[in-house]
Nucleic acid binder design. Sequence first.
DNA 1: CTAAGTGCAAAATGTTTGCATACTT
DNA 2: AAGTATGCAAACATTTTGCACTTAG
Lengths: 145, 145
Amino acid sequence: MEKKRQYRTKQREELLGFFKKIPGRHMTAAEVCTCLHDEGIKIAQATVYRQMENMVDEGILSKYTADPSVPSCFIYLDKDGSCGEEPCHHCICEKCGRVIHVHCHEIDHLAEHLASEHGFVINPARTVFYGICAECAVKSDRGAE
Amino acid sequence: MEKKRQYRTKQREELLGFFKKIPGRHMTAAEVCTCLHDEGIKIAQATVYRQMENMVDEGILSKYTADPSVPSCFIYLDKDGSCGEEPCHHCICEKCGRVIHVHCHEIDHLAEHLASEHGFVINPARTVFYGICAECAVKSDRGAE
DNA sequence: CTAAGTGCAAAATGTTTGCATACTT
DNA sequence: AAGTATGCAAACATTTTGCACTTAG
């Protein structure tokens, strides 16, 4: 809504640099803190939260919330909302928790359809597909019943 | 995994009955408590949480977590994982928070594609599309800049 | 009678916020 | 100088848990 002027602070630059170094990896706020701390960079967790929330708004990061009892994950997005070269969407396996990156035009196609037919513009940065990944499907085929 | 014997308690039956009465509506644990309370049925919130979590595991309910700062929502599912007659998917508007139910074969098509091509079986019960709904899009067109 | 469920209140957890200080522009 | 950002700790909100008691099988 109202755009606030943004200062170029040391903490923000560090965070940005950190995320750019690990494209395609998702991290919780706490993990970001720890990783930076290990590199000798100390940023308060509140700052991490605040900046990362900003970045989500700016479309720089994407945020996932699987379950309230688990910390949200953030991941770096390229300018075009992808995690790397191509537009990227995310699937989270409900069994193993793994995040799978999918580059798939079918999803883009769906997005167009929802926009034109249903007037709903998807935000790929926040939309996550939940389900069961191939490996876990195999496992539960044997384990179930 | 390990299936625990389940007792048929009054509270569980009430919850089940309550959800069956409102197919297609999503409710937080607190809302469920309040609604039941208004009907003269008093169930501890802890019990609601415990039972609803069970029901999610059993595939009776679906659970959404939009954001950790907002309570999770639960919704009743039919045997086939839908919210009513047709297979149902959910879009949440990031602006107004509204949940939009979409019955759309394009999504089913995508689901098939992900399954066959990517080996990922979507769980429609948990997958939510985030984005901006038509009404909010109009508003922000005027409001922005 | 035994195992499972309930209710209450207390804990736990992730996230947000108030405020004084420090930094950007 | 004015407006933001930071850091810390306290505050919050939701969800989970421990425990004594009740209920279902």
